[in-house]
Design a protein around this nucleic acid. Structure first.
Length: 209
DNA sequence: TGTCGGATCGTG
DNA sequence: ACGATCCGACAC
């Protein structure tokens, strides 16, 4: 069974895939409720040479195992003891490449998303980031390894929506990887939708007017 | 068995 | 700027 999505995740370079996943819908049935976001922010992690990747040097452990498996599956891990982080494993199989999904704009199940984010208060405080995203969609380590191309699965990627213009995607260095050193700190492997309020961290052009 | 530090987040 | 909070990785 072939699809545009599966072909993309299998055949393209992980940095290209990270850019291409902007605008793709991530749909979750975690907890029996449908929630979804349109992805607004991603980061590419390119093992084995990328020091910021958990699979740096092709280190193969229990945690990183799914990254060495077939593309199109979820890599979910716990960060700082608190936050679940959701990644899309990309191909080719055996190359432990992955794309971290950092943020998205709610597209389905908004009420549930707001509840899960504890945003029922009327105040502003529109927080975002990879940990908040997984909490909003009910994603945790139980989803590690699930096939994201299966239409019946608990997590699913859907790229049938309207495409994003290349000019609306901004590339910047990745966030929170100071430990990796150069040149990895400076690689422009983070991508986000220009001007979207659903983006964490610094924008490239901090409005100069 | 023990230590160490992290692909974060929200408050101060 | 900082503390919460816990697991994976590695040293011993």
């Amino acid at each position: 069974m072939s699809s545009v999505l599966a072909d993309l995740l299998r055949g393209e370079d992980v940095v290209h895939i990270a850019r291409s996943l902007i605008g793709v819908e991530l749909i979750s049935w975690a907890g029996g409720v449908e929630t979804a976001v349109r992805i607004t922010e991603t980061e590419a992690y390119r093992a084995p040479e990328d020091r910021a990747s958990h699979a740096f040097g092709n280190r193969r452990t229990g945690r990183t195992e799914v990254m060495f498996g077939p593309p199109g599956h979820a890599y979910v891990y716990l960060c700082y003891g608190i936050h679940e982080m959701f990644n899309v494993v990309t191909g080719p199989e055996g190359q432990a490449h992955a794309v971290l999904i950092r943020a998205g704009a709610p597209s389905r199940g908004l009420e549930t998303i707001l509840q899960r984010r504890n945003m029922e208060r009327p105040g502003p405080k529109l927080s975002s980031g990879p940990g908040v995203l997984t909490r909003a969609l009910g994603i945790d380590r139980r989803h590690n390894g699930v096939d994201l191309c299966r239409t019946a699965g608990p997590l699913r990627l859907d790229m049938t929506g309207p495409p994003i213009a290349a000019a609306d995607i901004v590339a910047t260095p990745r966030i929170g990887i100071h430990f990796a050193g150069e040149p990895w700190i400076s690689q422009p492997w983070r991508f986000h939708l220009r001007d979207s309020p659903y983006v964490s961290g610094p924008r490239q052009a901090l409005k100069k007017r």
